[in-house]
C-alpha cells in the first residue's frame, strides 16, 4: 500500500508540475529541434539561452530531442519562434503546417552548406556501397533523404542495401570511415574541413563520392507573418552575435549569426 501511495504521489507531482508549467504565463518561447546539430546536452543549451534571453526580454528557450514532441508543440501554439532545419521545415510544409522562414543562420558568412558523401579512396563509385555501413549524424530519416538526393535516381535502388549507422556527431561519422567502422559518411563540408585539422592523415585518405544540394544551416521560422511581439523576439535572436554570451550560444548550434532572407 505504501508503495502504491508513493507512486501516486510522485505521479501527481509530475502531472501538476507539467500542467502548471504548460500554462504558466511565461514566454514567448523559442522552440528548438535539430538532430543535425552536435549539441545534445539540452540542459546546458537551455541554461545558456535562458540566461541570455531572460535578460533580453524575458523569453524562454525550449529544446526538444523527440521530433514528434516538437511537432506537437508547433501545432498547438502560435506566436512563438521555431528553430529547425530547412529539410524539416519542408517536410512540415508538406504536412500543411504553414511555417514560414524568418531568419537563416550563418556560419563564417555563409547561409548554406552542402552535405558530402565521403569514403576512402578505394571506394571509387557509389555502387560499391552496396551492403555496407554509412555513418551520419541526425535522424535515420534525415540521413536517408540526404543519401537519396546524393545517389540520384540512377542509384536510388542502392538505398535499401545500405545500413545507416547513426552517430552523435558529424565528426564521428567521418572518423568512423577513417577507423574502419563505416565505409562512407554523410557530413557537412565544414566537418570535413575540421577533420583536416584534427587528423590530416585521415582527411587525405578520404574523397567525395557525391554532394547534396546546398541547404540552409538552421532556420528560425514562425507560423504566421510575424507580428510585433514575434518581431521583437526575432530581433533579439538577430542581435545575439553582438554579445559574447550570445555568440557562444549560437556556436553551440553550429552557427555564428543570423540573416534575414531577402
Amino acid at each position: 500500500m505504501k508503495r502504491i501511495l508513493s507512486v501516486l504521489f510522485i505521479f501527481s507531482v509530475f502531472v501538476t508540475g507539467a500542467y502548471r508549467s504548460a500554462y504558466a504565463d511565461e514566454g514567448p518561447f523559442i522552440y528548438f529541434y535539430n538532430p543535425e546539430t552536435n549539441i545534445n546536452n539540452f540542459a546546458s543549451l537551455k541554461r545558456g539561452f535562458d540566461v541570455y534571453l531572460v535578460d533580453h526580454g524575458g523569453y524562454l528557450f525550449q529544446p526538444f530531442d523527440i521530433k514528434e514532441t516538437f511537432e506537437s508543440a508547433i501545432q498547438g501554439k502560435k506566436g512563438d519562434v521555431y528553430l529547425l532545419s530547412n529539410w524539416h521545415l519542408k517536410a512540415l510544409q508538406q504536412k500543411n503546417i504553414p511555417l514560414k522562414i524568418a531568419l537563416v543562420g550563418t556560419s563564417k558568412g555563409n547561409t548554406m552548406q552542402r552535405k558530402v558523401l565521403s569514403a576512402k579512396k578505394d571506394i571509387t563509385d557509389v555502387s560499391m556501397l552496396k551492403n555496407t555501413v554509412v555513418a551520419g549524424a541526425g535522424s535515420e530519416e534525415y540521413i536517408q533523404s540526404v543519401l537519396k538526393q546524393i545517389l540520384g535516381k540512377d542509384q536510388e535502388a542502392l538505398l535499401k542495401d545500405i545500413k545507416i549507422l547513426i552517430v552523435p556527431k558529424d565528426i564521428d561519422a567521418i572518423m568512423a570511415v577513417g577507423f574502419g567502422m563505416a565505409t562512407a559518411a554523410i557530413s557537412a563540408e565544414s566537418s570535413l574541413e575540421k577533420l583536416a585539422m584534427i587528423n590530416p592523415n585521415q582527411h587525405r585518405e578520404l574523397h567525395s563520392l557525391g554532394v547534396s544540394e546546398k541547404d540552409y544551416f538552421l532556420i528560425a521560422a514562425t507560423l504566421k507573418k510575424p507580428d510585433q511581439k514575434e518581431e521583437q523576439l526575432l530581433e533579439v535572436l538577430r542581435k545575439m552575435p553582438d554579445a559574447d554570451a550570445g555568440e557562444e550560444n549560437l556556436r553551440m548550434l553550429g552557427i555564428d549569426g543570423w540573416r534575414a532572407l531577402q
Binding site: 509530475f14 502531472v15 508540475g17 507539467a18 500542467y19 508549467s21 504548460a22 539540452f42 540542459a43 537551455k46 525550449q62 529544446p63 526538444f64 523527440i66 514528434e68 514532441t69 506537437s72 508543440a73 498547438g76
Partner: peptide
C-alpha cells in the same frame, strides 16, 4: 496530448 507531449520539455525546464 499536448500536456503529455510537453512533459518531456518540462522535465528539462524543471531541472
Amino acid at each position: 496530448k499536448y500536456v503529455y507531449n510537453l512533459l518531456f520539455g518540462v522535465l528539462i525546464l524543471n531541472s
